[in-house]
Structure formats: structure tokens, C-alpha cells
Amino acid sequence: MIEDEEIDLLLNDVFEIYGYDFANYSKASLKRRIIRLFALDKFPSFAELRYRVRTEEDYLKRFIEEITVNVTEMFRDPAFYKVLRTEVLPILGTKPFIRIWHAGCSTGEEVFSMAILLQEANLLKKSLLYATDLNPSVLEKVRKGIFPLHQMKQYSESYIASGGVKDFSTYYTANYGQAKLNEDLSEKIIISTHNLVSDSSFNEFDLILCRNVLIYFDKDLQERALKLFDESLGALGYLALGSKETLKFSTIQSRYKQLDKEKIWKKTM
């Protein structure tokens, strides 16, 4: 049994030695992930996990990868992408230039989904997609744009449910069980590390997507992240969150108007 105090000590080490601050992450989720890693790597005691994290920078990398959740998929919640297609992109398309930020993009499946939407709307050429995550190893996967082939069947179904009318397999090349997404989808993707806890606003965007990232934060950190998004959104910009996340209790809410039932808000001033 791992005690909450032991978790706190470990997280404190990670902050003091490496600068990663997990103090305001959702405790229940973090604890579960740490217990999982503890079992996975067969540590005889919690003290040994703590020692390894403290002393081995390579292991710290694994620790960050394993305690943050990097599960994502293309066109997750097709109805959400349908609203992006039909209501958001036509408006963004009237701008000379479109800046989009995927905050906490993980391995990038949603970034590529967006690139496909933009390409189909003939807007990709005048767009820039900033893909950021705190975890450098997941960003390597965004850079490669290679995903397991067996997932493509489900992605294809979600793509069609989102209003896609092409043959989804034209967007990738299959090879040895892997699907490599077309190079032209990557051309407008800018990849960088960014930590929502400690880094500040770095540009002004027309659309910010941060889906199923805030669920791993406590309410204080959620509020801080939402303020950061608010500062980073231009007038009449859009903010998109995960299907069970909300602006409802945030101080920025009064400046935003929700589109339909989907978790997309438009900044009204």
C-alpha cells in the first residue's frame, strides 16, 4: 500500500530536481498511475522507486511518460469534429491566416485530424497548427506521424461519422503494420514542448483545443490553464475542451458563448 505522503515526497523530488510540477494534478489519477508504474517496473519498495527517479535522469523520462496519460485517437467524438467542420472552420476561413493551438496534444492524433479537416476545407495552406505537450517523447511521435495500422479501421469510421466523405485510406500509407500519414498533413504543424503548469502564453490563436487534458488537473490548475487560454485567444476565437470538461465554473466563462451542445466556446469580447 502506497501512502499519499509518499506520493507527495516523490512529486516534491521531481519538482525540486527536474522542475516538473505535478502538485496541482488530480491526486486520484496520479496516485493510480504511480501505483501502476511501481507494479509494472517491479520495485521492491517505494523508496527504491523514489531513489531511481531522483538519481537517473533517463528513468525520469519514463516516469513522466508513464504517469501522464497519453491515450488519444483520431476523430474522437465525431459529433465534435462535425461542428468544427460545419460551424467553426467556415468562419475561420474568412480570415487571411489561421492559427490553431493543440495544448497537451500527446501523440498528435487530434492534430492530424484537424489537419485533415483543414485540408478538406481548402484552408490548410493558410493555417499553422501548434502542437505542444510537456512530454518530449510523445512529440517525437507527432513528428513521425506514424500510428498503428490496426487503429485505422476505427479512425476511418469516426472520420466518416464526422462528415468525412473521402476514402480515409488515402490519408496514409500502410507499411509493416504501421500507417504513415501523408507528409503534406505535417507541413503546417509546429511542434514544441510547453507545460501548461509553468509556461506562459506564446502567441495569439484563433482556435485552441485542449481536450481531455484538464481532467488531470485539480480545479485551481484548471482555472490557471483556462486563464492562459483566454490570454492566448484572439477576439472571437474559439476554445474547445473534452466532452466532460466545462468552462461553467471558471471566471472566464462570462466572456464566452457555447456553440450548441458540443464543448466549443466562442470568445465574445
Partner: peptide, 12 residues
């Protein structure tokens, strides 16, 4: 998931 302060947290 259930937080110690009696809030729900979701996790994917």
C-alpha cells in the same frame, strides 16, 4: 476516479 476531497475526476 474519486478525489479525497469528494470530487470526481475522469481519466481516459
Amino acid at each position: 476516479l474519486i478525489e479525497k476531497n469528494h470530487f470526481f475526476s475522469l481519466d481516459i
